[in-house]
Structures are given as C-alpha cells and as structure tokens.
C-alpha cells in the first residue's frame, strides 16, 4: 500500500519491488494524484484519497485499509527509495510466524528530531511501549483485525495512533531492525503543525485511556512542541 502523491516513476519502481515479494500479494495504491495507466495495468488496485487535504497520510492509510482484501496489511511509504522484496517480506514475517499482530520497522527521517521526546512520552503514558525504539516509523505491517480498532487520525498522527490503539486493545507489537530506505538523507525540515498533529494524537489517547489529566496534557504538549524553538 502506497500513500502516494507525486513522482509516478518512483511508484512504478516500488510496485515492481512489491510484486516480487510473493505471488499472492495484493497491491493497493492510494493516490493523491493520478498515475499513468501503464502502472494501473499491473494488477494494482487503485483508490484515490477520499479527502484531498494535506497532510492526509492517515486518510490515505485508512482508505488503503478499507480497500484491501488482505488479512495482513503492509504499509510501504511512498518515499521509499528502494524496497527490496526480501526486506518487505521481513516486515510481515513476525505476523505470519504468529508472534506479533503489528510490526514496525525503520525510522522516520522526517521526524527524527523529535523521536526521542516522543519515545519518552510514550513510555511514560504507555509503559508497554517503552521498548519501541522508533514509534514514528512509517513502515508498518498489521493484521487487518488489529487495524479495525484504530481511531484514525487524518494526518501525521496516524502512525502513532495505530501503535497506541492496537497496543491498548491488546494486540502484540513487535519492532524489527529493517530499514527500507537505502540512503540516509539529512532530516527534512520539520513543521510545527506536523509535530502538533503527533502530539495531539498522543494526548487525545492519554486522556481517553485515563493515563493523564488535563494539566498533564498541557505539560506534555509543551514538552513536545516547546523544544522546537517556536514560541507557543
């Protein structure tokens, strides 16, 4: 599944890689913009993102989940440089082997700068997730059943929402040291709004699950956002 906007060339390469993972793989491309028909012709199911807002990562992920017929869903980020079939296979292997319901891999280059403070906050609110090294990683494999409990966030909060909601409902989370990006790039510019979405997704769940009070929520928000050097 490829939440995707932009470069159809990269999408074509990704699809070629994914189609080599296994004979019974189903590829769902969730698109923000139209793609060339030759890509559509490769047995790829195409659905356009329902609501064309940016960031719409969560909208695209949810659309992909609904549109897929598979029992195990693997999210492959559209920015992936080169997804080797073997690595994609490793991503969902723990589910097939029966010791996880949700698997995370890689790390988010986009949010590398805030990863540590998100990790600490998460460990405080949800101790069961304290061993997750990269909670914001964009590569996820999950049983469809696990995703059915997710209260979807529309934007950048989607990945953390999947992690927390599935954990709270008792699904087993695993993390594997597989990175699907070949090259390391400098972290991209971080936008305050994007971080706010992640912070809000965590706080909303903390309040929902009775892990924090409103006062603590304010403090957590400031802890996450305040260190970006932007005045609140």
């Amino acid at each position: 599944m490829v939440p995707h906007i932009g470069d159809p060339g990269r999408l074509g390469r990704l699809i070629r890689s994914i189609s080599r993972v296994s004979d019974d793989v189903e590829i769902v491309a969730v698109l923000g913009t139209p793609i060339p028909s030759k890509i559509r012709g490769k047995g790829v199911k195409v659905i356009y993102q329902s609501i064309l807002k940016y960031p719409g990562r969560g909208i695209a992920m949810r659309d992909g989940y609904y549109f897929s017929d598979g029992e195990v869903i693997v999210y492959i980020d559209s920015n992936t440089d080169r997804a080797e079939p073997k690595k994609i296979g490793e991503l969902y292997r723990p589910i097939l082997d029966g010791y996880a319901d949700v698997v995370k891999a890689g790390f988010s280059r986009r949010f590398l700068q805030i990863e540590e403070r998100i990790r600490k906050t998460l460990a405080k609110l949800y101790p069961g997730l304290q061993n997750i090294e990269h909670p914001l990683s964009p590569y996820i494999a999950a049983k469809k059943k696990a995703l059915s409990v997710v209260e979807w966030e529309s934007g950048w909060g989607a990945d953390i929402a999947i992690l927390i909601d599935t954990h709270v409902k008792g699904f087993r989370i695993a993390e594997i040291p597989v990175d699907l990006k070949e090259r390391y790039r400098k972290p991209s510019q971080i936008y305050r709004e994007s971080v706010e979405e992640i912070a809000e997704a965590i706080i909303k769940r903390g309040l929902r699950d009775g892990r924090i009070s409103s006062e603590e929520a304010d403090k957590i928000y400031k802890d996450i956002i305040g260190k970006l050097g932007v005045e609140i």
């Binding site: 329902s50 909208i59 949810r62 659309d63 609904y66 549109f67």
Partner: peptide
C-alpha cells in the same frame, strides 16, 4: 462515510 474506499466496498 468520509472514506470512498469504505463506501465502495
């Protein structure tokens, strides 16, 4: 619903 994928399926 606000998901086309859901509505279609």
């Amino acid at each position: 619903s606000d998901s086309d994928a859901m509505n279609i399926k």
